[in-house]
Amino acid sequence: MPSDTSQRPGRPGKTAGAFDIRNFIGALLFLYGVLLTLVGLFGEQYLDRTGGVNANLYAGLALLLVGAVFMTWARLRPIVVPPHVEPAPEDPTRPSPRRKQPRH
């Protein structure tokens, strides 16, 4: 488990940083939260559709919270990339972009 190795002191390695999936999830949900909260506060509320609830506002606030939780989680327990890993073989099960071959 990567989150465990990160807790151990004295193991060098860089963190996955912005490429941590939790940061992606957190950022997208947080941005959605910002948009929906703004729409809920200043936009049309369509109360006839929602049955009288400012749904955009509540959903927006919930998304802000969830987004923040994901980003905090990633901050508190970062994924650490071990300094020495074996090169990854190209995985035939996924059509991925070609990795550049080292020139000789």
Binding site: P2, A16, F19, I21, I79, V81, P82, P83, V85, E86, P87, A88, D91, R99
Partner: peptide, 10 residues
Amino acid sequence: DSIDFFLSGR
């Protein structure tokens, strides 16, 4: 490569 390895599911 190392991060790619790290994140590619393994």
